[in-house]
Design a protein around this nucleic acid. Structure first.
Lengths: 240, 240
DNA sequence: AGCTGTGAAGTATTTCACAGCT
DNA sequence: AGCTGTGAAATACTTCACAGCT
């Protein structure tokens, strides 16, 4: 049973917003979007020396209901012990395994301008197993430069490099005007997961996941609420 | 009628995941999360010289159903003309007004390390009306430096500056370990919208919107699907 | 003829609430 | 006594489908 797509973001999402492609299993996508939150919280708990945690306590940490956590986990197995709770280390390991986080993922970066350079310098990816192993740009002045330990290559070499270097994820950091064509190229090259920093809603075929991170969009969803609370709002938005 | 919170953020959004605080109106939060997508698409259309668009066409652009767009818009008013569609310029202006995008918003940045500097240098905020007018750091070596035209001040001055400079939004770009305490400080100072770049799920009181942008989280939601499609998956995840 | 705006129907997601294990 | 796992109930969200305007 495939499911219908919702738009966005969630980027905050909700991130991946809009999204494309049917689910590959019967696990609701919202559930998958939450799993990394559990992983992050459990890693913290493990680090803090906590051995066992209940869905109640985890829910307080993450500001969600205990029932939701239990239900989410139940899509994948039975990881808890009744009367006790969840073993932090065990649950963490299980979730990491479910999410495919126990391996390294090779990543290509397209666009090494200001934004791309800051992404390649971001220290958060490597410890989580995401290794940027190739960088591309269409600007001839960038080609041949070494950025973050990776030599920048022309986009024309992209397809070949994706295959040769076993790259399954791409990060798009090109101007909005080029994002769609870069995405098309990536899809043709066989990439099926794209983290998009360009402020566009790119079209991707089924089976290709795109998550767009757009800080401006995130801001704009907050101003709505700021604005409301400034002037106490009475419905009167319709035109005359 | 206030509503229940879903997690994120989505950021991932989509986006702010998990989020806090009840809705200030009866408009579903998912709808608010989509409005900026409409704004972005309409701005593109306007730029391209399109005068009128149907929900059908807009839906194709954004990969969503025409009905959803019409329903979303109907929460705020009647902006279209039967038989014709929506006037692009008019609808854009209406949505910008609803989202509070017709004014400038003063923004404070907390944390001017590598990430913070890249945020302050991001050229996407200013054209959308978000102006970073103050920057703070707890590192004495950063104090007094001028970054992106703004002088870095000690965090101790934050509360005073928020009030004095009419700042309603903050961007948190401090290490994860400090994010919660910075957020608490911001809330005490009266900030009610926070764009959080730290990889944590911070707790915020009702009425304070937090959107977390976490590229690692976004990546981790995609590996799930990559992983599934590598080995054709038969349900067998439960422990022995 | 074409398209909006919207109740009603259909899905999806969340929460309840409790049997059953420790 | 405490907590999980899960059907069933409740709620939220999306899509249908059509009256009504242009």
């Amino acid at each position: 049973m495939t499911k219908r797509q919702a738009p966005e973001e969630r980027s905050w999402p909700p991130h991946g917003f809009p999204k494309a492609g049917p689910d590959l299993s019967d696990v609701p996508e919202v559930v998958v979007l939450r799993l990394p939150l559990y992983v992050r919280a459990l890693a913290q708990l493990l680090h803090a020396g906590v051995n066992v945690i209940s869905s109640q306590e985890l829910g307080e940490m993450l500001q969600m209901t205990a029932a939701q956590i239990r239900k989410d986990l139940s899509y994948f197995g039975r990881f808890g012990k009744q009367g006790r709770g969840y073993n932090v280390q065990f649950l963490l390991q299980q979730l990491r395994s479910i999410l495919g986080l126990e391996r390294q993922w090779n990543v290509a970066l397209i666009g090494v301008g200001r934004l791309g350079r800051s992404i390649i310098g971001y220290p958060g990816f490597a410890p989580e197993g995401f290794r940027i192993v190739a960088a591309f740009d269409s600007d001839p002045r960038q080609i041949g430069q070494v950025v973050g330990g990776v030599m920048v290559r022309p986009v024309s070499e992209l397809e070949q490099a994706i295959a040769a270097q076993d790259i399954s994820i791409a990060i798009v950091a090109v101007p909005a005007s080029q994002a769609q064509q870069v995405l098309d190229l990536l899809v043709r090259a066989g990439v099926r997961a794209v983290l998009n920093y360009a402020p566009v809603a790119p079209q991707a075929p089924n089976g290709v996941k795109v998550r767009t991170l757009d800080p401006v969009l995130a801001m704009q969803t907050m101003t709505y609420y700021l604005y409301r609370s400034l002037t106490v709002h009475k419905e009167d938005t319709r035109k005359a």
